[in-house]
Simulated scan of single mutants.
Amino acid sequence: MRHSTAQIIPLRRSSLREIRTASIHSAGVRINGSRNEVWLCPAYSGADTVMLYVKPGLTVRQLVAELVAAQVGHCLGLPCPDPFIASVAPHHVGRARGPTMLAFGCQQVGPTSLAYPVRNLSLMLDLLRKAKATEGVCVLDEWIANAVRGPGDIVFDAQQSVWLIDHEGALEAHIRPDEAVTNWLAGQLDITLQTRSERAEFLGRLHQLARSLTVAQIHGVPPEMRDIERGDSTYAAVLEFLAARLDHLGSLLSARVIPEQRAFDMRDPSNDSASIA
């Protein structure tokens, strides 16, 4: 990945956030409403006791997509629950007894209760704006080629804090680094922009965030991935995709918001991201 220092607003210069490991210690409770099978399970992670949402039915690619989406979400300063690789006894997640398996888990969000989606779109957008997360979510979903986000994948806790969940549908293997996919939130925000000036300002903020990602360190396969069959090679392939897509991110965002916007060069920090050809 290229590194540039001029006119960049740095986010996180460190490597991707560590993937934690955990061991489920007793039977979980099946949670409804997700695209995939989810169980809320008590677990030990080192000396800590945590509650994890565990997805035992994901493919390796989906598991890696969940892990990496949370990691790069943190690079954008977004509220993604901490990702885990969880060791699970099958009978703790509704299966017959058998050998322990590894599954994706993320930490339960919300201080005292579950977090829930807000079904009123206007209210949800207002809450996202108050959390200063709208542009970040748009850039994240463009970068990870997340074509399946919907209102159920953005949840709020009792304090109205926002959390981004359910990224197993992102980073699909058949997507090209330069290929545009559906960006649900960007589309919803685009409808609210009434003037060319508003679009240019919105696009400028998206480009500013996209450029800041050139300082993020997204290399290296975590050692935990070696314990998952094809985990290390799949994780490496996903990082390769992200590095390649970063070169197209500005142009993808431009085409989505202002199709006539001139091509945006991520490698040129002097680029005026809001200029119109």
Rank of each mutant, 00 (worst) to 15 (best):
S45F: 03
A236I: 04
A216I: 04
R13F: 07
P79K: 09
L140D: 03
L209A: 06
K132Y: 06
L203H: 13
L78H: 05
V221C: 12
I24R: 01
L11H: 08
L193D: 02
N183E: 10
P90W: 03
E179I: 06
Q71F: 06
V257Q: 05
D48E: 14
A133V: 12
C106T: 13
L213C: 07
R95L: 13
P99M: 06
C75V: 03
P90Y: 03
G57P: 00
P117V: 00
S275K: 08
L16F: 07
K130G: 02
L78Q: 01
S233I: 13
I165D: 00
T49S: 14
E66L: 09
D247H: 15
D166G: 03
W39G: 00
A133G: 05
A27P: 08
H248M: 09
L114K: 09
Q71Y: 11
H92T: 02
D272F: 10
H92I: 01
N271K: 12
A89C: 08
S254D: 15
A65Q: 09
R95P: 07
V148I: 05
V257T: 13
L239M: 12
V181L: 09
A243Y: 03
A170L: 07
L125P: 02
R12G: 06
K130R: 13
S161F: 06
A243H: 13
D82S: 09
V54G: 00
S251A: 11
V72Y: 06
V38Q: 10
M266T: 05
A6S: 09
L128R: 01
S275A: 14
G46Y: 07
A255R: 15
I19V: 15
T214V: 15
A133T: 12
S23Q: 14
L209P: 00
R256H: 12
V137A: 13
L206G: 07
I175H: 14
V181Y: 06
I191T: 11
S45H: 06
Q108S: 12
N120H: 15
Q208L: 13
G204F: 05
H207C: 10
I154Y: 00
I31E: 12
G152V: 01
D265V: 09
R199V: 10
R2E: 08
A69H: 03
P151W: 10
Q261W: 10
G57F: 01
Y116Q: 11
